[in-house]
Amino acid sequence: MIVVTGATGTVGRLVVDLLLQAGQKVTAITRDPATAELPGDAQVVRGDPSAPETLGSALDGAEAVLLSPRAVGNATGRLPALAADLRRAVVLSAATVEFPAGHPRFHAHFRAVEDAVTTSGLEWTFLRCADFAANALAWAPQIRATGIVRGAYGAAATSPVHQRDIAEVAVRALLDDGHAGRSYVLTGPQSLTQADKVRIIGSALGEELAFQEVSPEQVRQGMLAQGLPEEIPDRLLGSLADYAVQAGPTTDTVERLLGRPALTFADWAAEHAAAFRA
């Protein structure tokens, strides 16, 4: 049996689906099963991974776990003690652990999770992901309303990774031998600026979209006015400032592990075009 934390997240939900398709028994941890909309074949358990005592017997018989640091928080080191049969952990980490960008406190959190798993006695695999292609959904309201994305650091360049690629690699690492002790930097196949991403979304829509440069402080104040905590603009703007100076990494790891080319941002945009249409 495999336990998935962050089961309703962008990657976790796909991992649940893929594991079930592979005939695996899956326990999906969620804080609110009533709204999770997870597959009926999964055992959906109410619990908070950041407070392992709420998980009850959810980890009984678990052989492997997908750990989402944002779901587990600082409780990573306490999980193995609650699961006698657990032997393998796959961690959704960040490329910034290996290629630092942005405020150090954010990638330090991912490093702390990795360190806790390394000393847990479990077999471990770290998936150090670039920014998700799905992060571009934050632009959808602007694109639907005006066809213009107003943002800072338009020249900031990363190689956004499709969530399906992350999920497929995660399932390989959860099920197959040969990944223990490995750290994989997962990116998309092409380095793109923010302006490039907006243009590609426009191509998927058959429209001409524009990226309009505004100051970082304007972006910060706009996000705070929406009620977002300060952590969100700090995380976003800190990384973009660094990627405007030096592009984020581009690797061929997805292709090497899956035996097919990594999905492109254009692939992602075509699949999600409906989210951007007025």
Rank of each mutant, 00 (worst) to 15 (best):
A204V: 01
P189G: 14
A156E: 10
A94S: 12
T193L: 01
G47F: 00
V44D: 03
E230K: 06
A84Y: 00
A204L: 11
G151P: 04
V45R: 10
A152L: 05
R70E: 03
V185S: 10
S191D: 02
A270E: 08
Q21W: 00
V45K: 01
V11N: 08
Q218T: 15
T193F: 06
A7R: 11
A140D: 05
V117W: 13
V4M: 08
A210Y: 03
Q163T: 14
V65P: 00
A130M: 04
A84D: 08
T119Q: 09
E98S: 03
P189A: 08
T193V: 00
K25W: 01
L137M: 14
G56S: 00
T30E: 02
S68A: 09
Y153A: 05
T119D: 15
R150T: 07
G206N: 14
Y184R: 00
A95W: 06
A133F: 10
S93M: 01
L257T: 01
D85V: 01
Q226T: 11
A84M: 07
L192P: 01
D131Y: 09
E208S: 13
N74A: 04
A167K: 13
L59A: 07
K197H: 00
E230N: 03
V198G: 05
L92R: 06
Q190P: 01
Q246N: 11
A145P: 00
V90I: 12
H162K: 03
V171T: 15
D252F: 02
L20D: 14
S203Q: 15
R220H: 06
L66V: 06
D177K: 11
L122I: 06
R256S: 12
L59W: 08
E53P: 03
A134D: 15
A42H: 09
A204T: 05
R105T: 11
T76S: 12
R144M: 08
L257M: 10
P104D: 10
L79P: 09
R31V: 09
A167N: 03
S203T: 15
Q212S: 14
T76E: 13
V185E: 07
Q43H: 10
L224R: 01
E208N: 10
G147F: 05
F132L: 15
E168C: 07
V171E: 15
S191V: 13
V16W: 07
I148M: 11
S50Q: 03
S120Y: 09
A28H: 05
P39C: 10
G61H: 09
P69M: 13
I148F: 06
G181K: 10
Q218N: 10
M223N: 11
Q246F: 02
N74M: 05
E168Q: 14
E213C: 02
A81R: 11
I232G: 07
L175P: 11
